[in-house]
Amino acid sequence: MISTLTGSVAHVGLDRVVVEVGGVGFTVFATPATAAAQRVGGEARLSTSLVVREDSLTLFGFATGDERDLFEKVQTVSGVGPRLALAMLAVLDPPTLRLAVASGDVRTLTKVPGIGKKGAERIVLELRDKIAEPEAVGAASAAAPTPQPEAARRDPVREALVGLGWNARQADGAIDAVLARDGEQTSVPALLKAALRELGR
């Protein structure tokens, strides 16, 4: 099992990063927010989960160990594979996901593209007694991001939202709402998270 991966970032895509470790490049699939937080040439430290199939080995990466643990836990539900589990964490942060499951909030769970009412009810039924509160973990303070031109922020966020299942009109509407409210200081990861919250209303 590969639990963490630390190395130089060689490539950043919408839903993946390539991390070089000891001369080997590992493709790591991630949520759009996690991928957008990486910088080519910088160092990445990701909590990871290796999904083994008969014909493939796929590595998924997360900003925190709690995200990785939830990713693995939700896959114990019948019908939930790694791609849907990743989409859940792209739309709902860990505290929101835990609260939705614990409280039986089907409406919140169905905000994830690919999860219908029956699927959400099954997730609640199978996970309600299994999801515990995360352990308190100290977080290092991050430096303030450098403002980017609007197009440089809008385009990757729009592509990420469309890739998660919303149409272009919905994506543009959410981005416009966030930019009108929060202005030009919003980074790509922050814009994506805010747009996801906007779409979840």
Rank of each mutant, 00 (worst) to 15 (best):
G183N: 06
E184P: 02
T64F: 06
K130R: 15
M1D: 12
Q170C: 07
G23Q: 05
I2P: 03
P189H: 02
P145C: 09
K117C: 04
L196K: 00
A10C: 05
Q38R: 08
L161N: 03
A120Y: 06
T6R: 14
E135G: 13
R197V: 00
T48Q: 13
V74P: 05
R154H: 02
R98Q: 14
R45L: 11
V101R: 05
T108Q: 11
F60R: 07
A139D: 09
G119P: 09
E43D: 08
K73M: 15
L192T: 01
P149L: 01
R39A: 14
L192Y: 08
V9P: 11
G13N: 11
K117R: 15
L92V: 08
V188S: 00
L164Q: 02
F60Q: 10
V9K: 05
S187Y: 05
G200R: 04
V74H: 11
R83L: 11
A142K: 02
S49M: 08
P156I: 01
R181E: 15
G79N: 12
V112M: 08
T4E: 15
L191T: 00
G61N: 06
E43T: 14
I131N: 02
T31H: 06
A174M: 04
A85S: 13
A35K: 07
P149Q: 12
A194C: 00
S8Q: 12
G13E: 11
E54Y: 02
N167A: 07
Q170G: 07
V18M: 05
F60D: 10
D172Q: 07
E54T: 11
P149Y: 00
M88D: 12
L127F: 01
A37L: 07
P32H: 09
E72H: 04
L109M: 05
K111R: 15
R16V: 07
L199A: 00
V112G: 02
L59Y: 06
R68Y: 11
V188E: 02
T96K: 14
L5G: 03
A36N: 10
P95A: 08
K73H: 10
G81C: 08
P113I: 12
A90G: 15
G114Q: 03
S8K: 10
A36F: 14
S3K: 11
Q170A: 13
L59A: 06
P94R: 08
L125K: 05
P95W: 12
G104K: 03
A87S: 15
T6C: 03
G65C: 08
G7Y: 07
P113Q: 09
R45P: 04
